[in-house]
């Protein structure tokens, strides 16, 4: 199997998303892949955007340093849309994601609910492998 070059991880600011980014950075460093961290801007967030579209959030800069990940291989994207559609779009040019990574539950979600689960939607519709990092996964 050809090693993958482009990994995309979803980020919504939640602890689960940080967990997913940590896993992605560790995995990408091991295989020398690039990582794109993408944040989806929804209808309500558009009214008061709290994350810069141009600059990687400081929490993620710190995380990259902690993971000893080369920030030159790290890209930050903010895209309009719901989380699932935005992640699926990442499999198209110009990003061409070969692996999608998400946390098991995003911000404001209740555990055990199927409706509205980004990870389940991605697994159903993604043309590339999807890694779902569970909330309980904290080993590095």
């Amino acid at each position: 199997m050809k090693p993958f070059q482009n990994m995309v991880v979803g980020y919504d600011g939640s602890p689960d998303a940080l967990n997913a980014v940590t896993w992605a950075l560790d995995a990408a460093r091991a295989v020398q892949a690039n990582v794109t961290i993408v944040h989806a801007i929804g209808l309500i967030e558009h009214m008061h955007e709290h994350l810069s579209r141009d600059t990687l959030p400081t929490a993620l800069v710190a995380l990259a340093q902690e993971c000893d990940f080369d920030t030159a291989a790290l890209q930050w994207l903010v895209e309009d849309g719901d989380a699932c559609s935005v992640m699926l779009r990442m499999t198209d040019p110009p990003v061409n994601a070969e692996v999608l990574v998400v946390g098991s539950r995003g911000e404001g979600k209740r555990e055990g609910l199927l409706l509205g689960s980004t990870s389940l939607e991605l697994v159903e519709h993604s043309p590339v492998p999807v890694v779902v990092v569970p909330s309980r996964f904290t080993e590095r």
Partner: peptide, 14 residues
């Protein structure tokens, strides 16, 4: 089923 269980946030908007 989701509604009859009490509902909640489906996603950050909905």
């Amino acid at each position: 089923a989701y509604c009859y269980a009490g509902g909640g946030d489906i996603d950050p908007d909905t």
